[in-house]
Nucleic acid binder design. Structure first.
Length: 511
RNA sequence: GGGCCCCUAGCUCAAUUUGGCAGAGCAACGGACUUUUAAUCCGUGGGUUCUGGGUUCGAGUCCCAGGGGGCUCACCA
């Protein structure tokens, strides 16, 4: 860091976070112990300490007695501490596991035991312990300490050792406390990482190329959503944070990269809910010489493999239900699904006024939906989506809400598109991509019309993308998958904030 | 954004129904204990009851306003 005294801190320095007046009794006690360690010439924050084995490695060793016991050094955070006269038991956690240590006065020396161990070491501190790996009388694998070193003093008390940290707000705002106090939370994020790795392996093995496309975009598109806006000062250019990768990935298909995918962050300037965070992680993959049927099979195979890689089975427990990722997934047209759940036939009710009247006649709220497509979308998300448990493909979508999907031959109102639903959520959205530049241009004009008539999620015209298509694009299928939601499913979490390390929250400042 | 619920010690929670000394467990501090397993036992300290107003002799509790969070509806993926 900066040279000491560079800013000439004097007595006028504000007290800061270590002002005893701002600390509770426990924090003051720890601060005092920190000073006590230093007074004894011990560094509470050494750069390195002895460690021969991770705790997981140590647990795999065969313990001994006396002379034949393995001599090891482990290190970790003290998560449990029991004093027992002139000895103590503690448990260390290093992220690979937990192991018990035994600190005996006769072994470590009476002075050290009294002046350091009893006087300065707290629950929550990091510690390095060298000693023999033995079994205690009750058969617990234990490091019988010969020597200990404080490896990182904690100045805050640990949350309740039994209940951990429960308050959701505290858990999200200080995720590090959540992670250190609630080991099962660490597992969620390990599972999330395995999920992403499994997806990468699946696509890589199929010859897909992983790419990265711009997050800052002059024209946003590829989904129906409101963007975050930002500005490039030097270039005097307004920019948007991407709401999807779609239009850039398809430019790569034009360029001859026949199988591409990207895993990254999308940003949508909209409400938050149990399944919505303003920034979220999306997978999009595009495959030339495929179509929405081919993509359906790809996705089915991918999710079945991911479920097995991550959960060891295709039958995944989620919130008291079982979600089966065993292929083939159920397939149903969107029309049939809506018909089944609402009794409304969107093919018959093909005019906005007719559909709106029919919905109102059934007491359904059609409030803010500005057009026919949005009404269909409402029926789907309100009456179909919540009722789907096992993965189900709904296919053949209205052209009116699908500006990038190719039309179904002979069905002027339908496009070759599907969405995958599971556990009451939309998990994926895919279609046969439009490769006819004139068709795409007409779709953009249609979006422009909607935009001018009150649909502020309708697309901007992206002339540059249309031009890309004029250079020729092969028949292509493409797909987007919500990684956070998939993780919710696989990790059996009820809420997207449980699978995002630092979910978005309001400012904590008080007014 | 709407509706409902919540915010009390470092943590987990009581006390709110019916306004009357703000409590327990863990953690901390002092003590006992050399094989514990959420160790046990004895003792001690610890509070801006989210914030600001109001009603009242008296407010954690009732009323108003604000902040944050949760659930839910709307919207989106």
């Amino acid at each position: 860091m900066t040279a000491a005294g560079a800013a000439s801190p004097g007595e006028a320095e504000p007290p800061g976070p270590f002002d005893p007046a701002r600390l509770n009794d426990q924090e003051q006690a720890r601060l005092h112990k920190l000073a006590l360690l230093r007074k004894q010439g011990l560094d509470p924050y050494p750069a390195r300490v002895e460690r021969t084995h991770t705790i997981a490695e140590a647990r795999a060793l065969e313990p001994g007695t006396d002379d034949d016991a393995p001599q090891i050094a482990v290190a970790g955070r003290i998560v449990l501490l029991r004093d027992l006269g002139r000895m103590s038991f503690a448990q260390l956690d290093d992220g690979t596991g937990v192991i018990q240590i035994m600190v005996r006065r006769n072994q470590v020396g009476a002075d050290w035991y009294r002046e350091v161990w009893k006087a300065c070491v707290d629950l929550g501190d990091f510690l390095s312990v060298r000693g023999s790996l033995v079994l205690t009388r009750t058969g617990e694998l234990t490091v019988d300490a010969q020597a200990c070193t404080v490896a990182g003093k904690a100045l805050k008390p640990l949350p309740d050792k039994w209940h951990g940290l429960q308050d959701p707000e505290a858990r999200y705002r200080r995720r590090y406390v959540d992670l250190l106090a609630n080991p099962e939370v660490r597992e969620v994020f390990r599972l999330r990482a395995r999920t992403v790795r499994s997806i990468r392996n699946f696509l890589d093995d199929l010859g897909y190329l992983e790419v990265e496309t711009p997050v800052l975009q002059p024209i946003y598109g590829g989904a129906a959503a409101q963007p975050f806006t930002t500005h490039h000062n030097q270039l005097h250019q307004d920019l948007y944070l991407r709401i999807s990768f779609e239009l850039y990935l398809k430019r790569l298909i034009v360029g001859g990269l026949d199988r591409v995918y990207e895993i990254g962050r999308d940003f949508r300037n909209e409400g938050v809910s149990f399944k919505h965070n303003p920034e979220f992680t999306q997978l999009e993959f595009y495959e030339a010489w495929s179509d929405y049927q081919g993509i359906m099979e790809r996705l089915e195979a991918m999710l079945a493999k991911v479920a097995v890689d991550v959960c060891g089975t295709t039958e995944v427990a989620h919130q008291g239900r079982t979600v089966s990722f065993a292929p083939p997934f159920e397939r149903m047209t969107l029309r049939d699904a809506i018909l089944e759940h609402t009794g409304l036939d969107i093919h018959e009710l093909a005019a906005e006024a007719d559909l709106r009247d029919a919905m109102r006649a059934r007491g359904m709220d059609t409030g803010d939906d500005p057009n026919w497509g949005k009404l269909v979308d409402s029926l789907l998300s309100r009456y179909v989506e919540p009722r789907v448990t096992n993965p189900m493909f709904l296919y053949e979508y209205p052209k009116a809400i699908s500006p990038f999907a190719k039309g179904v031959p002979g069905e002027p109102r339908l496009v070759e598109r599907f969405e995958l639903f599971a556990a009451g959520m939309e998990v994926s959205n895919a279609f046969t991509e439009i490769n006819d530049p004139m068709d795409q241009y007409q779709r953009f004009l249609g979006e422009k019309f909607l935009r001018e008539h009150g649909d502020d999620e309708a697309h901007q015209v992206d002339d540059d993308f249309v031009e890309a298509l004029t250079w020729g694009m092969p028949p292509t299928g493409g797909c987007g998958v919500g990684i956070d939601r998939l993780t919710m499913l696989l990790a059996d979490r009820p809420n997207i904030r449980e699978v995002i390390l630092f979910p978005h929250l309001r400012d904590a400042d008080q007014g």
